[in-house]
Design a binder for these strands. Structure first.
Lengths: 105, 105
DNA sequence: TATATTGTTCGACGATTGTCGAACAATATC
DNA sequence: GATATTGTTCGACAATCGTCGAACAATATA
């Protein structure tokens, strides 16, 4: 009953502005981040973004590698949550961006 | 002494969040926008961003097509300035982003 | 052990990207 | 007119992107 190997995450120092902006410059990823904006953790299957499962997985990886989300496995499921380090690095940035998003479908 | 044909700019309605974020997700373009943040117009030759002239021209086109800058010709020179429509569409967004730009490293 | 569930990784694909140098266009100056 | 100046567009290139289905890995359940 050992826990499987978890994902690699960049250190807080590796979170750069251009990288975060690039991570947010895709509608699917923007939708995921908006969904996480409340701060609570979400199961990765909760996102209904109209792309294949493998594509969503790819986008979560991009967000993870940009330092935007923490990605964790539990059993056969996966959970994601915003990384507090992001808010610490760029306080208010996410809110400033998300408040302009088109209405959450 | 006719004025040459000017550049095409997207309408204010075509300025979308993801498009703007994508335009800002490149270090060169981020630098240009930061340079324009004061609001005053700049000659395109004033930017020293370490890329070829044709590359800078490409980046200015990306910013123009994203609705971030107004690009105008005068004589043999070109001038760029932030589009007021951007601030109107996403008030405060640019400032929220630019304040986190890398300090003079 | 066998099977089902969940989600990642792999391989492929077309599209887009950032980059450069060369060629081009428009204007200014001689 | 001829030449110089300024900056764009073109053509090419490697790299990255978003996308999918198939294959795979880990866990849960029978």
């Amino acid at each position: 009953m050992r826990q499987a190997k978890q994902f690699e995450h960049p250190s807080a120092k590796e979170i750069t502005l251009a990288r975060v902006l690039h991570a947010l410059s895709d509608p699917v990823r923007l939708m995921v981040v908006a969904e996480l904006a409340g701060g609570q953790e979400r199961g990765s299957s909760e996102f209904e973004c109209g792309v294949a499962e493998s594509t969503l997985s790819h986008h979560l990886k991009v967000l993870r590698l940009a330092g935007v989300i923490k990605h964790r496995k539990e059993g056969t499921r996966c959970f994601v949550v915003l990384r507090p380090e992001l808010e610490k690095a760029f306080p208010g940035l996410l809110a400033s961006i998300l408040k302009f998003r088109k209405r959450p479908a």
